[in-house]
């Protein structure tokens, strides 16, 4: 049972959260300016990367607030949580590596 850090309530068990799919997929400014293929891209197609992925979550059993998170789809580790209106935080290669190092220690 993973812990997810709600920006408002702090760390809670993942069962309190619902998943909202890829973040930063804005509703098109003018849906009628898009042809069927372009509209279908918005409606049906999402990224599926291996590694950091920006996605939406809602603290359904807590404060009911939607937030964004960058999660590593390999390790499930949450690399960042941030406001739904904020841009995706820059997790550069070195920052990600630092994150990696932080998690490792010789035993």
């Amino acid at each position: 049972m993973q812990l997810i850090a709600c920006p408002w309530c702090g760390e809670r068990e993942e069962i309190e959260f619902h998943y909202g799919g890829q973040a930063h997929v804005a509703y098109p400014d003018d849906p009628y300016a898009l042809d069927d293929d372009q509209w279908a891209q918005y409606v049906f197609f999402r990224d599926n990367p291996k590694g950091p992925f920006a996605e939406r979550w809602v603290h359904a059993a807590g404060c009911r607030r939607w937030f964004n998170a960058v999660r590593d789809t390999v390790t499930h580790e949450f690399l960042a949580v941030y406001d739904v209106r904020a841009p995706r935080p820059l997790l550069t290669g070195s920052a990600a590596a630092a994150q990696q190092r932080k998690g490792q220690e010789a035993s």
């Binding site: 619902h18 804005a26 509703y27 939406r56 809602v58 939607w66 739904v84 209106r85």
Partner: peptide, 13 residues
């Protein structure tokens, strides 16, 4: 409710 909140909070805050 979650669906409505998602639109309200993320698209039309």
């Amino acid at each position: 409710l979650e669906w409505m909140e998602e639109w309200l909070q993320t698209e039309w805050p």
